[in-house]
Amino acid sequence: MRIKQSAVAGMFYPQSPDELAVMVSQLLADNQHQGCMPVAIMVPHAGLVYSGGVAAGAYSRIRPYLPMISRVVLMGPAHRVPLLGMAVMSADLWRTPLGTIRLDHQLSSVLTQEERVVINDVAHAREHCLEVQLPFLQLLDGGYLVLPVLVGQTPVNEVAALIGRILMEPETLIIISSDLSHFHEYDEAMAIDRATLQQINQLKPEIQPQQACGCYALNGWLAYAAEQGLQAEFIDYCNSGDTAGDRNRVVGYSSYAFY
C-alpha cells in the first residue's frame, strides 16, 4: 500500500495524537451548527489555532449525515508547486497523527483515465490545504473514502465539469478548501472579504486570486452550484486578527454549506 505521510503535523496542527484529538473534538463541540444535509461545504485551511473554529462550524453540519456519506472529495489550491489543471495523488492511504485514512484510488484512476485530472505527487507532497481537513474527517470517523484534488489554474467550466462527474457517484460530499484575503490590515481585509462573501452568497464564479487562494476550485464549484440551482448558506467568518494573530497583516477565513 502506498502511504502519503503527513507534511504539516507539528506546524498546522499538533503532532501529538492525544493533543490533536482533544483540540479537534473541542473545536467541533464549540462550533455546532445544524441544518439540512449539504452537497458541499467550504472551509478554510490555516493552522487550526487560526481557522479551526470556522472550519469546525461547517464540519459540524455534516455530523448528523455521516451514514449517508461514503466519499469525501477535497478540492483546494496548490500553494507550493505551480500547477495547471487538476491533480490527484498516487497513494492509497494518507497518514496523520490520528492514523491513516483511505483514499479513493478507484475513482482517482477513473478520472485520470478520462483525462480530467493527472497524477502529480510532487504538487501534493508538501501541500497543507487538504491535509488540515483530515483531522476533522478522522475525528468524525464516517468510514468514507477521501479523494484529494489540487486545482491549479483551470478554466471554470472544466472544474465545474469535474465536479458534475464526481457527483454522479452516490453519497459524495464535496469540500472546497480556501482562505480569503491575505496580509491586509484588519479593516481593509474585512472590506475585501465582505465583497467576496457577497459573491459566494450569490453563487457568482468571478472570485480572483487576491480574494481567495482557492479561487479556481471555488469558482468551479460556484458555477456548478448556480447551474444546479443550489443555495449557499453562510456559516461563519473571522480572520487571523480575531484568533491568534495581530491585526496588521491578517488572513480571512469563512465557512459555507451548499444544498
Rank of each mutant, 00 (worst) to 15 (best):
E114C: 00
A217W: 06
Y216A: 11
R116H: 04
R63M: 14
R95P: 05
I119N: 04
V54E: 07
A55H: 07
G10W: 00
F12P: 02
Q32H: 10
C238S: 12
Q202I: 09
R116Y: 00
D92G: 10
L134S: 15
Q231D: 14
P148C: 09
S109G: 07
S25Y: 08
L197D: 00
P135I: 07
R165W: 06
C238R: 11
Q32C: 12
G143L: 10
Y216W: 12
G53P: 05
G99C: 01
V251M: 02
Q198I: 01
M37I: 12
L218E: 03
R71W: 07
Q106W: 02
Q34L: 13
Q153I: 15
S51N: 04
A40V: 14
L111D: 09
A189Q: 05
D141T: 11
V54Q: 06
M75H: 02
L134M: 15
Q211P: 07
G252Y: 05
V81A: 01
A212H: 03
D246H: 08
Y216T: 06
C215W: 06
E19N: 04
N120T: 06
A160T: 05
C215T: 01
R102Q: 01
A257I: 03
H33S: 09
Y65D: 10
A40Y: 03
G76R: 05
R194I: 04
L230P: 15
G152E: 09
Y13Q: 02
V110W: 08
V149K: 01
I3C: 15
Y13S: 09
Q228P: 12
V72F: 03
L218F: 03
R2K: 14
V122Q: 15
V156C: 15
E127R: 08
G142Q: 10
V117K: 04
E131G: 12
C215Y: 06
G35S: 11
T112P: 00
D246T: 13
T196H: 02
S181R: 09
R116D: 00
D92Q: 13
D104R: 01
I175N: 03
V110S: 14
G214I: 08
L139A: 00
I101V: 09
E206R: 14
I166M: 10
S254N: 03
G142R: 04
S6G: 14
V156Y: 08
L140C: 08
V43A: 09
T172R: 00
Y259R: 15
D236S: 12
G220S: 01
Q208C: 09
H128N: 10
L111R: 02
V72S: 02
L197H: 00
S177G: 03
P135V: 09
G57R: 10
S70H: 13
L222D: 06
R126D: 13
L197Q: 01
L197A: 09
R116G: 00
R63E: 12
I192F: 11
R194V: 08
E185P: 10
S90Q: 04
R95Y: 03
Y259D: 14
M68C: 13
A160Q: 03
G76I: 04
F183A: 12
L145W: 06
